[in-house]
């Protein structure tokens, strides 16, 4: 029973990270139809931003976190402006491949400017301390992951329902032209979507880095693939779907860690993808996705 509770929280906290990443992907996709393959590199940006600050002698964890979040958000805005705006009205394949190229550029910038080898970022390791709650062992990080993610999602819901630009983002998911007819600036809506997606990714990135204590140029690849999987699981473009898909993925992963013997540990990622494939066979539109008919707006 104890074990079950601990693993459940574990599933929640890992799932929360995927949810945050998946949400960012889903927001950008729903607003402008872009499949942002470079989304995972936001994790790298956060990591290397912290690494650079720490190397310059700034080691206060809170400051590092704030700096990383600001940097990622800024990078997201810059990427939108220089790389994604030119392909905004292009077919979705073009956008996907552009993002794919952007991802490669960022990875190799980390590699070129810092090192191909992993670097330690130990400043956040204090979060891995365990605390005892009613006889269970949890880390501070796990509570933070669940708590901060909940707050972030609540904030996002408020933003989408309460602010003009949030309304415009929701409306743009269906019909961008009419949003422009309302006098809403397309550039502002899309830039906001990118900023939010970067902000959410930076939160997830901080958790990732706190867990690993190290960064490397290609650290964003697997998380973003899983975030994609989460999106597809939930129904691509659906925001609630992204959250549900992310959580589900977290639970599946924890379950696999528990169930698969160490000898088969190499199959963990493979099994995650296999399970996803199996789900998609039965529900090609994802769990919360609506049934897409041929010719609908899809990726």
């Amino acid at each position: 029973m104890d074990y079950l509770i601990e693993q459940a929280l574990n599933g929640f906290s890992i799932g929360a990270q995927y949810s945050l990443l998946a949400l960012g992907l889903a927001i950008v996709f729903s607003v402008m139809g872009l499949v942002n393959f470079a989304h995972g590199e936001f994790i790298g940006v956060a990591g290397y931003a912290m690494f650079a600050m720490a190397a310059m002698g700034m080691t206060d964890p809170l400051l590092l976190v704030v700096f990383a979040m600001a940097t990622v958000t800024l990078v997201a805005l810059v990427l939108e402006r220089i790389a994604f705006r030119p392909v905004r009205n292009a077919p979705s394949t073009t956008g996907l491949l552009t993002a794919f190229g952007v991802g490669i550029i960022l990875q190799n910038l980390f590699l070129l400017m810092v090192s191909p080898r992993p670097k330690a970022v130990p400043e956040l390791s204090a979060l891995n301390q365990t605390v005892d709650v009613w006889g269970h062992n949890f880390t501070i990080l796990q509570f933070l992951e669940v708590g901060v993610t909940t707050v972030a999602i609540a904030g996002l819901v408020w933003f989408l329902k309460g602010t003009r630009i949030g309304l415009a983002m929701r409306a743009a998911a269906l019909d961008f032209t009419t949003v422009r007819l309302m006098g809403m600036r397309a550039n502002r809506v899309i830039a906001t979507a990118f900023a939010i997606s970067g902000l959410l990714a930076s939160i997830a990135a901080i958790f990732f880095i706190a867990r690993r204590g190290a960064i490397d140029p290609f650290m964003g690849l697997l998380p973003v693939l899983k975030a994609f999987v989460a999106c597809v699981l939930g129904g691509f473009g659906s925001l609630p779907g992204a959250v549900v898909g992310g959580l589900l993925l977290g639970f599946v992963e924890v379950m696999l860690i528990v169930l698969l013997p160490d000898k088969l540990a190499g199959l963990r990622d493979a099994s995650v993808f296999l399970i996803v494939g199996a789900i998609l066979v039965f529900r090609p539109q994802g769990i919360l996705g609506r049934r897409v008919e041929l010719g609908d707006k899809t990726a």
Binding site: L167, A168, A171, D175, L181, M182, M184
Partner: peptide
């Protein structure tokens, strides 16, 4: 739109996923 020119498009193009109030809100963007 800011200069006072407005179009109600063909086929209405109401934002189907937004409430009536939210639709009006966005109209005053």
């Amino acid at each position: 739109v800011r200069r006072g020119l407005t179009l109600t498009p063909e086929g209405r193009k109401v934002f189907a996923n937004l409430t009536v109030l939210e639709n009006l809100d966005l109209g005053a963007a």
